[in-house]
Design a protein around this nucleic acid. Sequence first.
DNA 1: AATCTATATTAATTTATTATAATATTTATA
DNA 2: TATAAATATTATAATAAATTAATATAGATT
Lengths: 103, 103
Amino acid sequence: MLTVPVISVFKVLADENRSKMVWLLGEKEQTVGELEQALGLSQSSTSQHLKILTQSGLVSFRKYGNFRIYALKKEELRAAMSFFDSLWDKGLDRLKQNLEKNE
Amino acid sequence: MLTVPVISVFKVLADENRSKMVWLLGEKEQTVGELEQALGLSQSSTSQHLKILTQSGLVSFRKYGNFRIYALKKEELRAAMSFFDSLWDKGLDRLKQNLEKNE
DNA sequence: AATCTATATTAATTTATTATAATATTTATA
DNA sequence: TATAAATATTATAATAAATTAATATAGATT
């Protein structure tokens, strides 16, 4: 079951560093240090952003030694991104047309 | 062609009043006064939010007398919402093929 | 145990965003 | 043309969010 409070996800993603983190984590899971490097942020700031991302339910982490390896929870992100879908999903026919259009 | 700077759309939608406006406009186009009523905002605040939405490319308006009728640009919103799709679309080609085959 | 490494937390400062109040603009109408 | 209605704009005050700097913790290494 999905439990992300969807509206607030936009607030979480509103920060460019956080949306970049999500993007990077979409490629592969990463440690705090790796994200810090990739984004050119301070350790503290990186950590604070990761806390917000974790609390929002969009990412998770596991421990490995004294590292933390963060990962994107894709299904949660996907649920958030489909929040407005009812506005254009009048049915599967439409989906099919769209797939064709986006060729 | 779509021209929304996608990342910043999350910032636009981060404000709850604006995401509600988008939602309401998804149902049907509305005047400033109607949105003002529906959201219980002041005239000024409503107008300022609509300016941000318009500048982001997510909504448009047309004039009708001294009214302005705002409308959601669904395709733009949709493009923004599909920003992360590549993260889970590995099977999309396959889905598309199936839809075509089952015609 | 002492120390080092990776990360977290807290407090203070800076910066950005939102709401409010006042005024301006545009169009309609008497 | 004077006034009213709908909306926009601008300045300012209030609030929230991000960054920085300092300190703390947890696990690893000596």
